[in-house]
Design a protein around this nucleic acid. Structure first.
Length: 890
DNA sequence: GCGGACTGCTTACCT
DNA sequence: ACAGGTAAGCAGTCCGCG
């Protein structure tokens, strides 16, 4: 083995591929198979996806394009970027020509390392470099040795990788392509051009007026200036409309309710639709014996092209060619189904691997010719669901999402797929692609813009961004912020060891620390209520109280007096914490700039829309910024940080309540960051707000004003009627999605009645009306006048049916009855069932009879639904329905 | 063997 | 694979009573 120790002489590479290449080879990659069992430390479980000699266009010079991804090419052992050329609407590619290599750090010095035979003779070992980094945990500079390797797998991912040889390795679990992004200061989602083979960022045209204005508003805090310059281009560079197409496949399946197995791909692909945002719609259809083409279906656009095939392999080959024309391929569940099925089916049909532009890993499906976005994954992401789309869709099926967002429903199939005429099949297949594409087009391409913005802020490739969760986005952002400041990225175990555990006791069993306060509500009807709340409480706390993994329990003795309430944790007074800085900056940018600018009607609509997208993107990071520190897989996991955030939150609201009372105000409820105040004098409100700013250093705002609020004695349950008569309902059973329709409807009628109430006197009339509603509903239950659908509860299963071992909840009982008939269930599926007398006490709606309905259970349920509101009115349900003590419920 | 008190499991919600 | 706090209904267990 050649000695390669000493001054680093990096190996020379084969020249990067030039021009159009078509002889690519793709292979299924085994992922980290050797160590999947034991990933003791947090971080990068997946190894690099190795793209091998892809059919890319790699020009010497090229006009600016948007970086869509940075990846690693295993065959050429090089990082490469895929860029989108908006003029010619195609992907071009740049291969690393900077001689960048994978590496990690050790604290062992070079001389000692030289004698480590295992290391220096490692086949991927290239050499050492002396490096100085800044270690935030000790608040001191540290000398490290950089160990440079030939390829990512030599650093980590195999049992004999360099990181396994070293007693301790820093930054060895960051995936190479991300490392490359950080080191080259590449920002995915921004424009770069190729000049004489070099990748050069195109400066963004930021209007100087806007820049100045933002600097005045956000630059008040000197430490933000540098961050602002870093982020301005990300926030203000326009996003082009990217050429893309959605794909959906239909597979022959003789059995209904059975999802075809994408691994074995046993059945024929009978139709594939490819619908682009450039008005190109094609459905590829396989002719089958005894199946008619049929008539052109109603509602099926006439410009959709139908291409018939007699041979399935030929069809797939054509499909692959067509797909390759699009820089972005969209699917709904393509990772698990469509692309996986296509690949495995193509192999089964003996299509040559190099003609299949798909690469499969255990979890994902990538395209060699395009970027594949699986929209199911993106919309499945809780942060996207809750914060970007305000919880508008509750189920993550294409149907539910498109219904909630696009307001289009899918036509129900009255036949099985295999019974449809070819044209009806085409229509059916087209529809899914059409809707999938539309999910990226509505509101002026909102979703694409959101994805690009999130990519920029996270420094993640489009493929990674759309597949990973918010914790990963924040992780990557923090990694980058460390790297650009030359801070050593800490080892999770070190943070844990130095910072220790939490000190507070959670109220809920098995939780790691105490969370927020919920004020005991004062049950009753309260007129004229103002709700004050802290504007993004936790991010504000992180910013104002300098919370970060290195500043909480910092190494300086002189900071130990700066104690977090209710804990023994102290916070650094000498150094601004990195996460406090970044989160603080994002918070201020959202609150002081993008949020007001998204509502500023002096701006053009497009500008306003853009500001609102940025605002929503920022919200996603901010809302998760506290939670990640209490989440163990997060590599900056630090319980004292999460715990301190919550503790300061309790302190803040507690002090506001005390102050409000001292100002003579009546606090009737509060939750985490809000206080409900009855009949507040305006002067006192202003005083409280000013006091909070001075004393707590967090903005308290008027969130809403209610004409009246109904509080029951239950926390997190109330009904409020705003001054304008609109209604806000929280937590009440009548609003929950698992509640049967009959109860929801009756509840809604009660709410409607209440919304018309203007004064205490109106309640008498309202009570009468509610009485009618309740009575009639009660009687309809008694006489079983509702349909089975209206009686049905709808509950999701959260895990595979057979893993309910501790108890068997009712919905699982119902599902098991159905699975006896061969129906399959997967997590996320919704089960509709009714309560019946006898046996299990429940029946799935499919197997139920009206006669079996257990009316007592339903009467009971109606009672709870109504009582949550009637409680507040001081009326008992029994009295309202007019049943006597004799005629009780059971 | 039965019923009530209790605990734990599960889902859906709130901030 | 962001956190903890709350409500509700049911499943399952324990214990005392007869």
């Amino acid at each position: 083995m050649k000695e390669r120790v000493g001054l680093l002489k990096y190996m020379q590479h084969e020249p990067a591929p030039k021009g159009e290449m078509t002889s690519g080879k793709t292979e299924e990659i085994e992922e980290g198979s050797e160590e999947d069992d034991e990933e003791e430390e947090n971080g990068e479980e997946e190894i690099e996806i190795e793209f091998e000699g892809l059919p890319y266009f790699c020009p010497e010079n090229y006009d600016p394009g948007l970086v869509l991804s940075v990846e690693y090419d295993g065959k050429n052992n090089l990082a490469f970027a895929r860029l989108y050329d908006p003029k010619n609407k195609r992907i071009f590619c740049w291969y690393d020509n900077t001689n960048h290599h994978p590496y990690c750090y050790t604290d062992i010095d070079e001389e000692k390392l030289k004698s480590n035979k295992k290391l220096v003779t490692h086949e991927g070992f290239l050499g050492f470099e002396k490096i100085e980094k800044y270690d935030l945990l000790s608040d001191k500079p540290v000398k490290m040795t950089k160990i440079v390797a030939n390829d990512p797998l030599s650093v980590g991912g195999k049992s004999n990788s360099i990181r396994e040889i070293l007693p301790k390795a820093w930054e060895a679990r960051i995936r190479y392509h991300n490392n490359f992004i950080f080191d080259k200061d590449l920002i995915p989602g921004l424009f770069y051009r190729i000049e004489k083979g070099n990748l050069i960022q195109t400066p963004s045209q930021i209007p100087s007026l806007i820049k100045k204005e933002m600097e005045t508003i956000l630059g008040k805090e000197p430490e933000f200036k540098d961050v602002l310059n870093e982020f301005l281009p990300l926030f203000l560079t326009p996003v082009p409309d990217i050429k893309r197409a959605a794909v959906d496949i239909e597979v022959y399946s003789p059995i209904r309710d059975r999802i075809p197995d994408s691994t074995t791909a046993e059945n024929q692909v009978i139709a594939v639709s490819l619908i682009s945002n450039e008005n190109e719609s094609t459905v590829f259809v396989l002719r089958r014996q005894d199946v008619e083409a049929g008539d052109w279906p109603k509602g099926f656009p006439e410009d959709v092209r139908i291409e018939y095939f007699d041979n399935e392999a030929q069809m797939l080959t054509k499909v692959f060619k067509a797909m390759s024309n699009y820089p972005i391929i969209l699917t709904f569940n393509g990772d698990n189904f469509d692309l996986r099925y296509l690949y495995n089916r193509a192999i089964r049909l003996a299509i040559k691997k190099e003609e299949i532009p798909i690469i499969l890993t255990n979890e994902f499906a990538y395209m060699t010719t395009s970027i594949h976005i699986d929209l199911y994954r993106f919309f499945h992401n809780r942060s996207i669901q809750v914060y970007a789309f305000s919880d508008r869709y509750k189920e993550e099926t294409l149907d539910a999402i498109s219904k909630a967002i696009l307001n289009v429903g899918k036509a129900k199939l009255d036949k099985s797929i295999h019974e449809l005429s070819l044209l009806n099949l085409s229509y059916y297949c087209w529809w899914d692609s059409y809707v999938t594409l539309n999910l990226t087009q509505f509101d002026d391409n909102l979703v694409m813009k959101l994805i690009i913005l999130l990519m920029r802020v996270s420094r993640l490739s489009m493929e990674d961004l759309t597949r990973q969760g918010v914790s990963s986005w924040i992780k990557n952002l923090f990694y980058y912020e460390h790297r650009r400041r030359n801070y050593l990225i800490p080892i999770p175990a070190d943070i844990n060891q130095i910072k220790g555990m939490s000190e507070t006791k959670a109220i809920i069993k098995d939780k790691k620390f105490r969370g927020a306060i919920v004020v005991e509500p004062e049950a009753g009807v309260h007129f004229n209520v103002a709700v004050l709340d802290f504007a993004s409480l936790y991010p504000s706390i992180i910013k104002e109280y300098n919370l970060s993994y290195e500043t909480v329990r910092c190494p300086h003795p002189e900071c130990r007096t700066n104690i977090v309430p209710e804990t023994k944790h102290w916070v650094c007074k000498k150094r601004k914490g990195i996460t406090s800085l970044i989160i603080g900056f994002l918070r201020d940018t959202r609150v002081k700039w993008f949020k007001p600018k998204s509502k500023d009607h002096s701006l053009k609509v497009e500008e306003r829309t853009w500001n609102s997208i940025v605002e929503r993107a920022l919200k996603v990071y901010l809302n998760a910024s506290y939670g990640v520190f209490g989440n163990e897989p997060f590599p900056f996991y630090c319980l004292p940080v999460a715990e301190s955030t919550a503790a300061i939150g309790r302190y803040a609201i507690q002090r506001v309540i005390t102050k409000a009372k001292s100002l003579g105000m009546n606090v009737i409820y509060g939750d985490t960051d809000s206080v409900f105040i009855k009949n507040p004098p305006e002067k006192a409100i202003n005083e409280l707000i000013n006091w909070s700013k001075q004393e707590i250093r967090i903005d308290l705002e008027i969130d809403s004003r209610y004409r009246y609020v109904c509080l029951s004695e239950r926390k997190k349950n109330y009904l409020g009627v705003f001054k304008d008569g609109s209604v806000n309902i929280k937590g009440l059973t009548g609003k929950k999605r698992n509640t049967p329709q009959f109860a929801q409807k009756a509840f809604l009628q009660m709410v409607e009645t209440l919304s018309r109430v203007e004064s205490m006197e109106d309640f008498d009339k309202a009570k009468k009306e509610i009485q009618e509603v309740a009575k009639s509903c009660y009687n309809k239950i008694k006489n079983k006048e509702f349909s089975l659908e209206e009686f049905a509860f709808h509950v999701q299963i959260s895990k595979p049916l057979n893993s309910y071992v501790k108890t068997t909840p009712q919905h699982v009982k119902a599902a098991r009855q159905l699975s006896k008939n061969g129906k399959a269930f997967k997590p996320g599926d919704k089960i509709s069932f009714v309560k019946v007398r006898g046996k299990d006490g429940v029946r799935p709606i499919e197997l139920a009879n009206k006669e079996d309905i257990d009316t007592d259970k339903y009467k009971e349920y109606l009672k709870t639904t109504f009582e949550q509101v009637l409680d507040a009115l001081g009326v008992s349900f029994d009295s309202i329905v007019g049943i006597t003590k004799l005629e009780t419920w059971i």
